[in-house]
């Protein structure tokens, strides 16, 4: 992820001896814990029904909805979160530390609590939602837009923190130089700061997208679950669990394969290109 032309440091002779078991053993356990559940899905999957399941209109509908909402949430995160990350990293705004704490709250909040919190604000009887509903008859919960809001709520901190980190590690002297050449603050941001932070922004966007794609708790609490409008893949997995464990496994695998494939593709096309 380094943007400088300095070559990555090679391990010196002293650091290449035998690997210490104190590090190897925990690492091995960590890999086992992370990888075994995925292996479990692969082993238990009822492969014979896979072809049929992949063509199931309800599955495709849920998959399409998941990809659509997660991508839209990521765009919203980028548009709103990148400027916020800049404020946190580069401005001298008072209360930045409190602001950063506030931004990270959704990270530690159980998503279900996030869903309840969203209801208290944007629900039909919520602080803002109630007023909007009275005035226009529009309600956000139980809509695809509501899904995007719930996903953005949980995904935005990932983007903001990643972009803030990238901005902090990028050399601010480039900005100063741009300013001395007469660039306005906006020009400096859009022409200098942003391109330098691009790898960080992209990895933040990918983190946010992955988090949004897997979002379940806040979405189902805020939006319920209905095929086509609010039943994303995770909700469909939960729904399938009630009746058909095998179908739930297959749905999980489909989500897994599609998301990993997309991430791999993005890595190939964007990240590598952006870094080199």
């Amino acid at each position: 992820m380094s943007t400088s032309d300095r070559p990555a440091r090679r391990p010196t002779a002293a650091a290449t001896g035998r690997l210490p078991w104190q590090l190897l053993l925990p690492s091995f356990l960590a890999v086992a814990l992370l990888a075994l559940p995925v292996v479990g899905l692969l082993v238990r999957a009822p492969w014979s029904t896979l072809a049929q399941q992949v063509r199931d209109p309800e599955v495709l509908q849920a998959l399409r909805l998941s990809l659509l909402t997660a991508s839209t949430s990521t765009v919203v995160c980028l548009v709103l979160g990148t400027p916020l990350a800049w404020l946190l990293a580069r401005s001298t705004l008072p209360g930045r530390r409190a602001l950063r704490t506030l931004v990270t709250v959704p990270l530690v909040l159980p998503p279900v609590v996030g869903g309840v919190a969203l209801l208290t604000v944007f629900g039909r009887t919520g602080i803002v939602g109630g007023w909007v509903y009275e005035a226009s008859g529009y309600r956000l919960p139980f809509t695809t837009a509501g899904v995007v809001v719930a996903q953005t709520f949980v995904a935005m901190p990932f983007l903001v923190l990643a972009v803030e980190g990238a901005l902090r590690s990028a050399d601010p002297r480039f900005d100063d130089v741009a300013a001395t050449f007469g660039a306005s603050r906006w020009q400096t941001f859009s022409r200098v700061t942003l391109p330098l932070a691009l790898p960080g922004i992209l990895s933040g966007a990918i983190l946010a997208w992955a988090r949004a794609l897997g979002e379940f708790g806040a979405t189902i609490t805020f939006n319920g679950s209905f095929p086509g409008t609010t039943r994303t893949m995770p909700s469909a997995v939960y729904n399938a669990l009630n009746t058909d464990f095998d179908a739930a496994i297959l749905l999980s695998l489909i989500l897994l394969v599609v998301s990993v494939a997309i991430l791999a593709l993005l890595r190939e096309r964007w990240l590598i290109g952006a870094v080199s």
Partner: peptide, 18 residues
Amino acid sequence: VTEEENVRDVLAKVTQGE
């Protein structure tokens, strides 16, 4: 607008006024 997994969740959506 929504199919809830259990009946108390349906009730909650009504009592919440959603």
